[in-house]
C-alpha cells in the first residue's frame, strides 16, 4: 500500500476520526509498515511535547478593559433601539424617506402629461405661455423697446391708413 496516501490519514486515525473501513485499512498497513508505525509514534510524541508550550495569563487590565467597553455599549430598548447601533441603516432609511417624498411631489405633473387632458386648449395655452414666459430673449424686452433704431421708423406710415379708412 502507498505510504504517502494512507499516511495523510494518520493524524485522523490517531484521533479516532476514521470510519471502520479506513481504520482497518490503516491498521493493516501499520502492521506491515515500520516507517508509518514510527511516524505514528512520533505524532503521539509531538502531541505530548506540545503540552510544554507555556500559556499566557491575561493581564488584569485586559478584563477591566473588556468590562469597560461592554459598559460603554449602548443599551437597546424599544422598537427604534436598532437604529442606535446601526447608524448606516438609519441614514439609509432617512435618505430613502426623503427621496420618496421628493419624488411624490412630482406626481401631479407627471399625471397631467401621461393622461389625456380634460381641457386641451386651456392646458396647451397655459403650457405655451409658460414656455414663452421663460424664453431668454424676452428677458431683454426693455432693451428691444428702447432700441434707438426703432425711433427712426416712419410712424406716419402706420397712422396714415387710418384716416383713409375713415373716409
Amino acid at each position: 500500500m502507498n505510504c504517502g496516501h494512507i499516511g495523510k490519514k494518520l493524524v485522523a486515525y490517531l484521533d479516532g476520526n476514521l470510519n471502520i473501513a479506513e481504520r482497518r485499512q490503516m491498521e493493516a498497513h501499520l502492521a506491515v509498515c515500520t516507517a508509518c508505525r514510527e511516524r505514528a509514534a512520533e505524532f503521539r510524541s509531538v502531541w505530548d511535547v506540545l503540552d510544554e508550550l507555556p500559556a499566557l495569563e491575561p493581564s488584569i487590565a485586559f478584563d477591566n478593559r473588556v468590562r469597560e467597553r461592554v459598559r460603554q455599549e449602548p443599551v437597546r430598548t424599544g422598537f427604534w433601539g436598532w437604529i442606535v447601533p446601526s447608524p448606516r441603516m438609519a441614514f439609509a432609511v432617512t435618505a430613502l424617506l426623503i427621496a420618496s417624498i421628493w419624488l411624490s411631489s412630482f406626481q401631479p405633473g407627471r399625471l397631467a402629461v401621461t393622461h389625456p387632458p380634460v381641457g386641451p386648449s386651456v392646458q396647451s395655452t397655459e403650457a405655451e405661455f409658460g414656455m414663452i414666459k421663460d424664453l431668454p430673449v424676452l428677458e431683454d424686452y426693455d432693451v428691444v423697446t428702447s432700441f434707438d433704431a426703432l425711433s427712426e421708423l416712419p410712424a406716419q406710415q402706420t397712422s396714415q391708413p387710418q384716416p383713409s379708412n375713415q373716409m
Binding site: 495523510k8 490519514k9 494518520l10 493524524v11 485522523a12 505524532f43 509531538v46 506540545l50
Partner: peptide, 13 residues
C-alpha cells in the same frame, strides 16, 4: 482539514 492537520503535524514532527 485532515490534510491540513497532517501537514502541520508532519512539519512539527
Amino acid at each position: 482539514l485532515k490534510s491540513l492537520l497532517f501537514r502541520a503535524y508532519e512539519a512539527l514532527r
